[in-house]
Amino acid sequence: MPWRFLLPVLAGIVLGCAVLDPLITHGLAWSNPSFGAAKVHRLFTELHPDEVAIIGSSRADGSYVPELIHPAAWNYGIEETGYDVTRMILGQELAKPKPGPVIINFDHTFFSPYQPSIAHFIPEVRQAAVAECFAQRLHWYNQVPTLRYFGVMDEYVKAFLSKYTSGTVRSKGGIFVNNAAPPGELAGMVQRRNATRHAWIPHPKEEQAWIDLLASTKRTLVVVVAPYHPAYLQTDTNPAAVQEYLGRMQALPHVHVIDLSAMPLPDSCFQNTTHVNWEGAVRFSKELRSRLNALGLLPIGQE
């Protein structure tokens, strides 16, 4: 009968999956605190009452050096994160009984449809907020131990190995590229950037929903625009639209907007026209800290 063959095989597979799943989750996915999966895990399962959360996209991940901003700051930036995911992450952060401010990195393309890798979120797929946010992209098998990681293992292995490679600096969730783009390469990027134009694309429904979310809390929210290379800002055909939306957020009493998008930085501070490197991140983080201190927005004390 087929069961004489199938049962031991199925039992072996089930057992294998049961053993492998925690190894993958703990040993790989959560092994590197600078990898998105570890950040999402920390966000959903840990409570650090004094923590100052920094959230946003890869520009948050690679621009904010937590140690230079506040002793209790933690960088939750995840690459390719846009409105949908940032909204989910901010919602989770605001649900925590924490008094401290939240720093939100705001990109000029914040409302564009970004799709972060599902790998960051699969370990927390049982969280209702994650399941809701990724309803379109999750499958039934993303609930099955080990099988849920099918096709995304590469990203975990890469994240695991990146702990042992040079070229980046890691600090409390943030990961920063050490080197600047070679001058010729950056010049090429600038040239390509200059050949294109971009502008704020209106997303009225999402824009209002974001304002509503910001308005739903009494916690201090600091919306920050991290530096762009001048070439990026010069090719924006409608900068007034960005300023107008920043103004809408600023109008909320507990929201503070700090626009450092045009912070003067030399080319040696950039890895490309939208992302700074370690040197740029250090300069930006120091400037941000002094602005936050001047506004009295940072709590006193350490985690």
């Binding site: 031991p8 597979i13 294998g16 080990t146 099918f150």
Partner: peptide, 14 residues
């Protein structure tokens, strides 16, 4: 078969 299936789950790609 058991080992191959587990290898596929670990190393396979979509």
């Amino acid at each position: 078969v058991t080992t191959t299936v587990l290898l596929i789950l670990l190393l396979g790609r979509n």
